[in-house]
């Protein structure tokens, strides 16, 4: 029974991402969108948290339009970028979607 968690708040102003990573299981997925993709910035604490989660075989995705809008560089190899069709696919693939609204 798997869960796709969707986080969209900046990790620098809000605790949603941290709170979500605490309860993420190996079989769950994490989709970053909106300001949450700022967590991917190299050399930051949130990025270190994500690196750690990915190393512990958590699946992490990001919405490509948000990466593009912010011209984020230095993206990690473990990251899988998805478009909206991919977002919909992930919602089907995981058994429930938990949007951290």
């Amino acid at each position: 029974m798997t869960t796709l968690h969707v986080v969209s708040h900046s990790p620098f102003a809000d605790d949603r991402l941290q709170s979500c990573i605490r309860l993420l299981r190996p079989e769950d997925g994490l989709l970053l969108c909106g300001n949450a993709v700022e967590a991917l910035r190299d050399g930051t604490k949130p990025r270190a948290l994500l690196d750690e989660a990915a190393a512990a075989s958590r699946s992490i995705y990001a919405l490509d339009e948000d990466l593009a809008a912010r011209a984020l560089a230095g993206l990690p190899e473990w990251l899988r970028a998805v478009d909206y069709a991919g977002f919909v696919e992930l919602s089907c693939q995981y058994q429930r979607v938990n949007g951290w609204t």
């Binding site: 969707v6 969209s8 708040h9 949450a36 089907c92 429930r96 979607v97 949007g99 951290w100 609204t101």
Partner: peptide, 9 residues
């Protein structure tokens, strides 16, 4: 089958 919620951000 799926309830998907979207917030402010």
């Amino acid at each position: 089958d799926r309830l998907v919620c979207f917030g402010d951000q």
